[in-house]
Structure formats: C-alpha cells, structure tokens
Design a binder for these strands. Structure first.
Lengths: 93, 93
DNA sequence: TTGACAGGCAAGTGAAGACTTGCCTATCAT
DNA sequence: ATGATAGGCAAGTCTTCACTTGCCTGTCAA
C-alpha cells in the first residue's frame, strides 16, 4: 500500500476526496466535469487520472469496473492511522 | 497558517513528530542526535531546521526561546481539521 | 574577551512530482 | 462495421522540494 500522507499532500487530490464525499461512485469524466464547474480546476483528463491512481494506491479510493465505466469509491479508513500515530490534544475539553 | 498536509507529506518530518511525541520540548541539536541515533537519519542541521520551520508554519510545532536555546513543542490540534473534513468509516464497529 | 556552542540566512544542486501532449485500446449504440 | 464514448500508456516539460555548503549572528563559560 502506498503513502496516505503523500496522497493528501496535493490540494487537487483533497478536492477530489471532497467531491467523492458529497457524491460517491463517480466516473473519471464526472470527476473532471465537477472539478471544472465547481472548483475552476481545468485540468486534463490524464492529470486527474493520475491523481486517482495515487489515491487508489494510498487506499483512499476503491475501483469498481463495469463495462467501459470505472467508478471511484471513497474509503477514509486509512485516515485512522494518522490519529493512531499522534494523539490529538482536544484543548479545553 | 501553512499547510498541515504538506507538513505531514515528508517522512522525516513525521519522524520528528514521533520524537516530539515521545519527548516534548527538544532543541534542534537534540532532535538531530535522536534522528541520527534512533532512526539512522544522518541529515545536516540545516535540513532538520528547515523541516522544523515547515512544521511550525503548519501549526504542528510551537517555539519557546530561552537564551541560546530554542525548544520545540508538539501541537497536534491541526490534525483535527483532517477528521472534520472527511468522516471516518469505522468498519465493523 | 576569547573560544565554544546553539542557531540562522542564502544560494546552489539534484531529485521527485504535477501536468501536458500524442497515440492506443476497449466498450457500446446505430 | 463504424463512429462516438470512456479510459490507458508513455514520453517530455516544468515546477516544487529536500538537502547541502558556506558564512554569519547571538549566547554562555573560562
């Protein structure tokens, strides 16, 4: 499994996670359209595809293939490793 | 405030956070020695100093100056923004 | 007050990473 | 079968970033 922290390092990848949080199971083209329309991110299809690969290798995204479509599903369980590693100071609580 | 995700992206910076978790309030030289002895990370003092700057800008470290010493204190509260952004799937619970 | 200690500043190098362009494969409808 | 759709592969470019080297400043002890 790849690097969760490296996957989260890029702002475009974080926006992709935001979009999948709001609407899970999108295809590559759907993600392209939503990044362009809602976030003014006019990247090439390849650029976004490469981002999705990084997110998949980090375990943040699972792939479901159906015909010529490739659906992307969010998986936030790798984030738990962050909190297991460093305890959070909940100040004033 | 800087980028928490960018700060966590580098493995050396994550090791520094580990060391401060185990022993808080270390100076630059102490951190250098511990990285070398316990993690076989023989980096220059400048390299580690630059890492500490990134961590400080991200709000993960606070500085306390005393004479010619500069003590570094861990602050994990910025990590909370990660969990507020993406809800965690606690599978099987 | 002189030397040792703790740290800072800035330019330079080399590698990783984000993004593009061009071309190719596979699936589906007409 | 043919065109349109959804996606993949592989350079190549350009920027960011980690790290080093050299030199400078401030603090403390002898």
């Amino acid at each position: 499994m790849g690097d969760v922290f490296k996957a989260l390092a890029d702002p475009t990848r974080r926006t992709i996670l935001d979009e999948l949080t709001e609407r899970d199971g999108q295809t590559l083209f759907e993600i392209c359209v939503r990044l362009a329309n809602r976030h003014h991110l006019n990247l090439s299809r390849q650029a976004i595809s490469q981002h999705l690969t990084v997110l998949e290798e980090a375990g943040m995204i699972t792939i479901r293939r159906q015909g010529r479509y490739k659906f992307h599903h969010l998986d936030t369980t790798p984030l738990a490793t962050i909190f297991e590693r460093w305890p959070i100071n909940r100040e004033g609580q």
